[in-house]
Write a protein that binds this DNA or RNA. Sequence first.
DNA 1: TTGCGTGCAAAGGTTTTGCATGGCA
DNA 2: TGCCATGCAAAACCTTTGCACGCAA
Lengths: 137, 137
Amino acid sequence: MDAKPKYRTKQRKILLEYLRRMPGVHITVKDVCEYLEGQGTPVGQTTVYRQLERMVDEGLVNKYIIDGIGPACFEYIADGEHDGAEVCFHCKCEKCGKLIHLHCDEMQEIQEHLLREHAFQMDPLRTVFYGVCEECM
Amino acid sequence: MDAKPKYRTKQRKILLEYLRRMPGVHITVKDVCEYLEGQGTPVGQTTVYRQLERMVDEGLVNKYIIDGIGPACFEYIADGEHDGAEVCFHCKCEKCGKLIHLHCDEMQEIQEHLLREHAFQMDPLRTVFYGVCEECM
DNA sequence: TTGCGTGCAAAGGTTTTGCATGGCA
DNA sequence: TGCCATGCAAAACCTTTGCACGCAA
């Protein structure tokens, strides 16, 4: 848990500009590095890791650990939705690997049920439902 | 996805004996190797990985990827419950790290909802709910 | 000038793979 | 005997850490 940044570095600015262009899209550290490399504005992967982690703490970015194996995914939260306006659930198909985004109010019943009956406050940002999607059934 | 084993090797027997002694308990590959090493019946970690993966395919063992980081957990399914008699949900507290097992019929409503409304067949064995537990709230 | 941020290189930890050997049927 | 399983070593992968340098304030 790093504190908020004290300096406005060039790298952070580059990163934020890139992220803002694709709100709600899942990207990996590798994605970011390769893209910026191709743009002629490379940023070291260590810095990307550290800045993204920091942005998670700041509430600018969500971090998803979709598979146990494989890289973590980051997603810029659209400007104006920074206080969790839209909650998004994730379903991952174990067969084809597809990732499905669910925007479903009813799913919040799950959260309420867990809270009421089991005293557990579920975090939809980190929870991923694994299973089999329609096409693979 | 390996096929079922064709040979009954000594190592597989050792592994199964160990696993059967602790049904429903979460163990890592490292746990297994260290214990068997101490027992004087060492089994190579590569073999443990491969056999456990195989047992998951056979339905003898459940595999949980609890944290994105850290080793995967395996759990022997108690003899007699091999056909999913008892469904168990997992909740992981992001603060204290505690793992909570839920045996709750109501939670199956979630599965039904996902299936009916979203055509997604959730797999409770692999799905872990992340959040904050009662004590940490 | 101060000290935080950067980035290279290396370490850390888990899982997979190559390949020769050994054991089950 | 034939082929699968084993296990060592090494690779592959993602992430974190150490440390010297550079840049923002």
